[in-house]
Amino acid sequence: MTAHDYPEVWQRRTPRARLVQWMGWLCLVALFVWCWQVMTANTIWAFVTDAPRQAADIGSRMWPLEWGYVPELLLPLWDTINIATLGTIGGVAMAFPIAFLAARNTTPSAMILRPIALFIIVASRSINSLIWALLLVAIIGPGLLAGIVAIALRSIGFVGKLLYEAIEETDARQVEAVEATGASGLQVLSYGIIPQIMPAFWGISVFRWDINIRESTILGLVGAGGIGLKLNASINTLSWDEVAVILLLILGTVVVSEWVSAKLRRAII
């Protein structure tokens, strides 16, 4: 025996904290089981067990790839890139003023305009571009325009949020110094704040363009133009060999756009 009576049990947390923690995990497990049961209540398990066979079937139909389809895809691909680029330009143009309304240090009215700007940002962020496209196709008809507007509307929230955070993080001393010269409100923005956020602005825009390239590839599924239209057509006719070619083309585009955006961002910063 040792001379002192050291405790033989060591615990990282107090018993109460441990209890709370275990209860937390237990609740999570119970919630998971319950959700699982609700979710799978209508699942037809025969389909699930049949899935490997289906997968093998689809896989075998993909081969050989239908390379002859590629020339037909180039024009839709060009459309897709245009949707992403024009949509990004439109979204950024709308997000720019909204970010200034939403930023605490530049908003002209914290009581009315700021909440409105924040709501626009949240609404745009919560709704995926595919849903925007679905709505716009119903409203202005199928085509590139619906896709461009959908991408623009979705981009407002993303660009607006990151941009207004950048505005709030600007160095207040530089702004104060411009104010002290007797500059007007717009002059303070253009000399004190905009130079400070320019790198963030270009970085965010290019980043969003990269994301928009990905998103615009599928907008055609709901009729909003681009390569997604071809994808939809091939899926509807179960031509999996064409689907595989389209997917490879999309993957290639995404890789290239990622490379371009990384290059551009490095050039800016």
């Binding site: 001393r173 530089q174 110094a177 411009v178 002290a180 010269t181 007007s184 000399y191 004190g192 400070q196």
Partner: peptide, 28 residues
């Protein structure tokens, strides 16, 4: 006014910083 830690607009040129002293005199 001259500031502690200069408070220049760091990303603008020296000339623009000096000209920003004229902001109160020129239209936007």
């Amino acid at each position: 006014m001259i500031f502690q830690e200069y408070a220049l607009v760091e990303r603008l040129t020296v000339m623009e910083n000096v000209l920003s002293g004229r902001l109160g005199y020129v239209p936007f």
